[in-house]
Simulated assay, not measured.
Amino acid sequence: MSSRSAILDQIRRQLGRGPLPPDAVAALEARRPAHTRVAVGDDLVTRFIARFESRAGSVARVATLDEVPAAVAAYQARLGLPPRAAVARPLAGLPWPAGFSHHPGPAGPDELLSVTPCLAGIAEVGSVALPSGPDSPTTLNFVPDHHLVVLHCSQIVRHFEDVWPLVRARPGGMPRTINLVAGPSRTGDVELTLQLGAHGPRSVHVILVDAPI
């Protein structure tokens, strides 16, 4: 049991009741104030790709999750990187090519390439939501020069606000950190010249998987 669950259970015991029934939960949800959201068309995948690539991110598309290792190897070879990566544990069991070395995180300062899953893609702005945790440490998102993110088309949501119900529904509860990444790290502080990789990866590459998660 998480600390959050233990605290909530203690509060319920003090109040003399258990979890709220579904109709009470629905009534409370209905009381949340609504606000105007950016209009987003129904083709969420196309919108996500366009917005993500507009900020120097790149996208490759594969049919199934088993094709991810080949896409990673192709990206690594195209950039002339060593055939090695820090790979988050949920992806470690995929059929990685012979000769491609991979290990579960965290990523050290000499790591050049990392591969992680994500919680969601946000069509509105073209960002990916990356929760922290022991299976995908935050170092994988920011330490290597090149970060590859595996995103299923079925994980793409319409607006920022649509991410938070997914966060609350995670089996492990609320993570310590959620990073919303919209492309490579950058700065224009030096003579107003855009530089990539200022405070994180020089490249962020999404591998978009057609098959549902």
Rank of each mutant, 00 (worst) to 15 (best):
F142Y: 15
P117H: 01
A123M: 04
L166T: 00
T177S: 08
V150K: 06
H147R: 07
R13W: 02
N141G: 05
A56S: 14
T139D: 04
R89H: 09
L28C: 08
A182S: 15
A86Y: 09
T187H: 08
I122Y: 02
I11T: 13
C118R: 02
I178N: 04
T138M: 02
A6F: 07
P137R: 12
A6L: 15
R202T: 00
A182I: 06
T177H: 14
I122C: 02
A169M: 00
R158K: 14
L194V: 09
P97Q: 00
R37F: 12
R186G: 01
L65M: 11
P69L: 09
V38T: 15
I213Y: 03
D42P: 07
R47F: 02
A74L: 07
V143A: 06
A98C: 06
P104Y: 08
S2V: 08
H199S: 05
V62W: 05
E29K: 13
A169R: 10
P97Y: 04
V68I: 13
A211V: 00
V150C: 04
S58K: 11
M1Q: 10
A34R: 15
T138D: 01
L119G: 04
P134H: 08
L8H: 12
L196Y: 10
R78G: 15
A50C: 08
G173Y: 00
A98E: 13
M1T: 10
A73S: 12
H159Y: 13
V157Q: 02
L166F: 00
T177V: 11
A56Y: 11
A85W: 11
G57H: 08
G188K: 07
G173R: 00
R4S: 11
L208R: 01
F48R: 04
P165T: 12
R61C: 01
P106H: 07
D66K: 09
P82H: 03
G108H: 01
A169D: 07
G41A: 07
A88C: 15
L94Q: 07
A85D: 10
S127N: 06
T139S: 15
P175K: 00
R55E: 08
A73M: 11
R176D: 14
A86K: 12
M174G: 01
C153P: 04
V167A: 15
V87T: 04
D66Y: 02
A39T: 12
L15R: 06
A27M: 06
A77I: 10
S58Q: 10
